[in-house]
Each structure stands twice: as structure tokens, then as C-alpha cells.
């Protein structure tokens, strides 16, 4: 469906600031390209968030120094606040940091005051006018499963393992998307492309990368990943689809590391949700950056 049709149906032209974070632009720019392309299909424009930095990772920098974590995260949110655009992110870590920082600043005036005092050096002021959204929310709420379905031209005929990651839904008290124990939002988006979302053991388990574990103890971190991927393989899953650039790195690159460290080879293709949707919209594997993944795409994901 083109933009004109979208407008005719009452869709408002929407523009977002894309908070990139680190992994997306610096390791998996395919996620960036796919997301911008998919949103554009529905008339949703993406604006650069100039001068943004590392979010900084909630479980890593939050574990080192919560003050520094909050200030840098608040600065990133404020950059968008200054230009009056809502943010979307393609990483659960970025979401965790920015959404939580935004939440804290909205809830606690004394924190807002402190943050603004420091940000004023740079001429920034947090006002709390904008929202921090996960790309999944944009896909599900702004666009909707039905419109995505309608736009599919090249249906995906494959068994997919959904990987939600952790910080998109949790802590639910802060995120406000309801119970994280039985989510369906990602499964619905996957199935919108005609693919089948298959249940597997420990579907909601963490990929193992977060909280600084990946950098501190790679073997332990990869053991999480290995279990998840082995569980998906056992369930007959042909590819995993995720919501987070960091999970994405852990599960894609991680498979190479698992092979090196544990001698086990899984070759399970890993796709970000907008890469899967992009394929179903007729974009090529190359345009979506899927050909540059550590684990090569299998035939079903080559267009």
C-alpha cells in the first residue's frame, strides 16, 4: 500500500527521530536500512537524531554508575525533545535506557531539575514532550498487522522462532505493555508476513548478551545463546526473528563464536523484524543487508 492510499484511509503523516544507538549503525546497518524502508512504505518518515551517542546500555552502564547512565540517556531523549519528534529505536537496550530515563524524568521532578542543570551547558532542556517508542510499537500501533498483511507481495513460507528479548517488555511496570509472560505482539507481526511463528522451549529466555555478561564472560553468555538456538532447532524452526540489534548480534555473530568455542554448528539465519517484513514486501536480501550477516540466509530468505 502506498503513501497516498494510507493517507486516504486517514493515516496521518508521521515523522520520527530514529535513535540509532551503537550496534545498529556500527555493526548491523542492514537493520537501519530495512527499518527506514519499511516505515517509508507507510508514509512514516525518519529523521536523523544528530549528535546522539551510546544509549548507554542499561544493564552495562547502569551497572557501573546509574548517575552517568541517566544523564547520557536523558541527553539522548532531550535531543529529540528539542526538535519535538517522538523517538523510535531498533534495540531493546536503547529502548531500556531511553524509555526508562524518560519515565524517571516524568515521574520525578527532582531528577528532571538535576538533569536539566547539567544539560544546560550544551543548551539543551528536557521538557518531556515526546515519547520513546520501540519499533515494534510503531509497526503494531501506528501501522497495524492488517496493513502490513495487505502490503505483503512476497509471502514468507517458513517456520520462525520469535525472540522477544528482555527489555522491550520488562520491567512491565515501567514499559507499560502488560504482562511479559505471554506476549503475542511479535508473533502477530511475524505471521503478518505469512510465516508461521513456532513455539519452542524457553521462548522468552534472554539471549545472554545483556547486563555486561557478553563482555565479561563470553562463554557463559554464549551458553544462553546456544541453548536458545538449539531449542529452536529442536522445534524445527528455520530462522529466528528478533526485536533488538544487540540480541541480533549475539545470535548471529554468536553462532560463529559458539562454533569456535564449543565446536557446535547451527547455521540458523537471524533476521530483525523489519528485515523479515522487508523481504515480504519484495525488497531484496541485499537491500536489507541480510547478505552480510555472519550466518548466511537460507533459500527461503533469499529474494
Amino acid at each position: 500500500m502506498g503513501y497516498d492510499e494510507f493517507r486516504r484511509e486517514g493515516g496521518k503523516m508521521k515523522e520520527y527521530a530514529y535513535f540509532l544507538g551503537c550496534i545498529t549503525p556500527n555493526r548491523y546497518p542492514g537493520i537501519e536500512a530495512s527499518t527506514i524502508k519499511v516505515l517509508k512504505r507507510f508514509g512514516i518518515e525518519t529523521r536523523d537524531l544528530n549528535g546522539a551517542s551510546c544509549c548507554p546500555a542499561p544493564g552495562v552502564f547502569g551497572s557501573f554508575d546509574l548517575n552517568t547512565w541517566l544523564l547520557i540517556a536523558a541527553r539522548n531523549v532531550t535531543l529529540a525533545d528539542m526538535i519535538g519528534l517522538d523517538i523510535y529505536v531498533t534495540c531493546n537496550g536503547c529502548y531500556g535506557s531511553l524509555q526508562e530515563a524518560d519515565h524517571l524524568l516524568k515521574e520525578r521532578p527532582e531528577l528532571k531539575e538535576w538533569v536539566n542543570e547539567i544539560l544546560s551547558d550544551e543548551g539543551l532542556e528536557y521538557k518531556g514532550r515526546i515519547k520513546v517508542k520501540h519499533i515494534i510499537e510503531v509497526l503494531y500501533e501506528d501501522i497495524g498487522v492488517d496493513k502490513i498483511k495487505d502490503a505483503v507481495v512476497s509471502p514468507i513460507n517458513a517456520k520462525i522462532g520469535a525472540h522477544y528479548g528482555c527489555h522491550f517488555l520488562k520491567p512491565s511496570l515501567v514499559r507499560g505493555h502488560g504482562s511479559p509472560e505471554k506476549p503475542t505482539i511479535l508473533d502477530e507481526l511475524i505471521e503478518a508476513t505469512c510465516a508461521e511463528s513456532i513455539d519452542y522451549k524457553d521462548k522468552l529466555m534472554c539471549c545472554g548478551a545483556g547486563g555486561g555478561l557478553r563482555s565479561r564472560d563470553l562463554n557463559t553468555s554464549l551458553e544462553f545463546t546456544r541453548q536458545k538456538i538449539a531449542n529452536m532447532k529442536d522445534a524445527g524452526i528455520e530462522a529466528s526473528v528478533d526485536t533488538c540489534a544487540f540480541c541480533h548480534l549475539q545470535m548471529d555473530r554468536g553462532q560463529i563464536e559458539i562454533k569456535e568455542k564449543f565446536g557446535e554448528e547451527y547455521n540458523l539465519p537471524i533476521l530483525f523484524i523489519t528485515q523479515l517484513i522487508g523481504l515480504s514486501f519484495g525488497f531484496s536480501t541485499k537491500e536489507l543487508g541480510l547478505d552480510k550477516h555472519s550466518i548466511p540466509m537460507t533459500e527461503k530468505f533469499i529474494r
Binding site: 540509532l20 556500527n26 555493526r27 536500512a33 537524531l49 551510546c54 537491500e287 543487508g289
Partner: peptide, 28 residues
């Protein structure tokens, strides 16, 4: 400004994908 900074390989890929070679972040 990044916990995971850019490298040459990614710069090249960014260009291929039609993105700016360096992202509009502290890198730029």
C-alpha cells in the same frame, strides 16, 4: 561516544546500503 564504535567494514556496508558512511551520531 559509542560502546561499540564503527569500523571500516561497516562503513563500507553502510555506503552499499545507501546510508551515510558514518552515522549521524557522536561519530559525525
Amino acid at each position: 561516544g559509542h560502546a561499540v564504535p564503527i569500523n571500516d567494514e561497516t562503513k563500507k556496508l553502510r555506503k552499499e546500503l545507501g546510508l551515510s558512511e558514518v552515522p549521524p551520531t557522536t561519530h559525525k
